[in-house]
Amino acid sequence: MTQDVGVANERVDTLSTEELTVTYDDIPVVSDVTVGFARGEVTALIGPAGSGKTSVLRALNRLHDLTPIARVHGSVRLHGKDIYDADVDAFEIRRRVGMVFETPTPFPMSIYDNVAWGARMHGRPSELDAVVEHGLRRAGLWDEVKDKLRQSALRLSAGQQQRLCIARTIAIDPDVILMDEVTAPLDPISTGKVEDLILTLRPDYAIVLATHNVQQAGRLSDRVAFFLVDESRAGRLVEWADTDSVFFAPRDARTEAYISGRAGSDMSARGRTG
C-alpha cells in the first residue's frame, strides 16, 4: 500500500525498443522507432507495404543477425535487458521471442516433430509428448491432427500449417510472439480461425502482429503502432496508442487518412473479449 498510485497505472513492457533503426547496406529502411509491448496485449503494427513492419519485427528477435547486410541501431529490451548486449545469446533470445512468418513454413517433418523439434532443444525430453499436445491444443489443432501426428506436416492445408507454426512457437514457451502478416496468404475461414486463436493466446503473451489489414488490426489489437514512409524514404512510427484512440481519435492526420481510407467505418466486428 506504500506504492504510488501513478506507478500502478504504468504499463510494464515485456519488450520495448528505443530509437530503433534498421539499415540494409547502411541505408535506413525504418528509423527511430520507440515502442513497447506488454504481456496480455496484442499490438498491431500497421502501415503500407514497405513501411518497415517486417524489418522492425526481425529486429525484435535478432533475426537480422542472419542477414549480413542488415544492421540494427538503438536498443531493444526484453524484461529491461538489451538483447543486443555482447553477453546476450541470440539463440536464447529467439526462444523467448518466438516468430511466425507470412508464408506457413512447416519443417519437412512429421506434425509431431514440427512441434517437438524446437521444444526438444529447450525442455526435458520426458515431457516432450505433453509439450507437443499442449502446443497443438492451444493452437486449436489437436483435434484435427491427433490421429496423424506421424504424417508429414506438408500435407496439411495452408491454414492448418500456419496454426502448426503457431503451435511450434507455443511449444518453446516464449514470452513474446511475433506474427508477420500471418493471415495474408490464407482464405477467409482459415483467417478467422487464426484470428480467434490470437485472441485466446492474448492473455499469456505479448503479441506483436504486423498486418496491412486495418480491419484485422481493429478486430484483434489492444494497441496500434502505425508506420509510414516519410520524405527521407525511411519508415517512421507515426503514431502508437490504444487501438480505440488510433481508430477514433487519431492525433496525426496521416493516421486518420490511412485508417479511414482502408478501414471505412466498419468497426462492428471487433472481437474484444477484455
Binding site: L63, R94, P108, W117, M121, R168
Partner: peptide, 25 residues
C-alpha cells in the same frame, strides 16, 4: 532461406539448423 529462418526462430543454433534441416534437404 525461409526454412532456415523458421528453424532459427524457435531458438535453434546454427549447428542444429545445419544438422536437422539444411543437410537433410
Amino acid at each position: 532461406p525461409r526454412l532456415r529462418l523458421a528453424a532459427f526462430s524457435v531458438g535453434a543454433t546454427r549447428w542444429q539448423v545445419v544438422r536437422d534441416h539444411v543437410l537433410p534437404q
